[in-house]
């Protein structure tokens, strides 16, 4: 479904990501694990069109070449990105955020159904429709961010460290709701430092180290892998 090949991003002369490639298939959860500063966010931003990738990159979504397209066009191809800062409109209400999520043309036809689905998934948001997002807690903001992204009726939801800043309890709740999102038929591509919980819900995983993909396997195999345990699961 999504094939991103040979993605390289340089900030000035600093290399953030070098020839990284991933593939996301229909209805699966894929996690990219990596330490702080490994280039995970940059990689997602490059696919999402927020950060320009170098020549030679190729991003193909459902057979459509979206390489080097700006962010507002990438969304129309069915990829919704929740960036690290959540990408929400803090001064606007929950409903306004969700309405804006349905701004892409592809989202308009099923706006009502999508809204109902999201409000069922996150009943909290239904209670707080008229509240300004700025006044909400970190966990609630993350729900708004994911809801906003789901409103664009994406095929793939890309999440940049969704568990960042959440309490352990909210974290578990978040990962449970991601499984529920997958059950609606979407694929999820998330980058995380929280290896344990993300591998538990994922189907497959990639390892990103210092801008390079250093490994990929099924989530089960990765969870058992010695180097992964050492690097990300605090074992050994």
């Amino acid at each position: 479904m999504l094939e991103a090949k040979n993605i390289s991003v340089f900030y000035g002369r600093h290399r953030a990501v070098e020839s990284a490639s991933v593939e996301i298939r229909q209805n699966e959860i894929v996690v990219m694990l990596g330490a702080n500063g490994a280039g995970k966010s940059t990689f997602l931003r490059a696919i999402g069109g927020l950060t320009p990738a170098m020549k030679g990159a190729s991003v193909v979504m459902d057979g459509v070449n979206i390489t080097h397209r700006p962010a507002h066009e990438v969304v129309e191809s069915g990829i919704a990105l929740v960036p690290e800062d959540r990408g929400i409109f803090a001064d606007l209400t929950v409903m306004e955020n969700l309405q804006l999520g349905a701004h892409p043309k592809r989202a308009r036809a099923h706006e009502k159904e999508n809204l109902d689905r999201i409000l069922t998934l996150f009943p909290r948001l239904a209670e707080r429709r008229k509240q300004a997002v700025r006044t909400m807690s970190g966990g609630e903001r993350q729900m708004v961010a994911i809801g906003r992204a789901m409103m664009s009726a994406p095929s793939i939801l890309m999440l940049d460290e969704p568990s960042l800043g959440l309490s352990p309890l909210l974290c578990s709740e978040l990962f449970r709701s991601l499984t529920a999102v997958k059950e609606t038929g979407m694929s999820i591509f998330l980058v995380e430092q929280n290896a344990k919980q993300s591998l538990a819900i994922a189907d497959r995983g990639y390892l990103l180290d210092n801008g390079h993909i250093t490994g990929s396997d099924t989530a089960e195999a990765l969870a058992k892998d010695e180097t992964v345990q050492k690097a990300y699961l605090g074992a050994g």
Partner: peptide
């Protein structure tokens, strides 16, 4: 909806591009 689009750009231009606002 058009007015909401402009308010979205005022609040957060980068998030606006993520919801396909040019």
């Amino acid at each position: 909806r058009a007015g909401l689009t402009l308010r979205a750009v005022a609040v957060n231009p980068s998030a606006a591009s993520l919801v396909s606002i040019n």
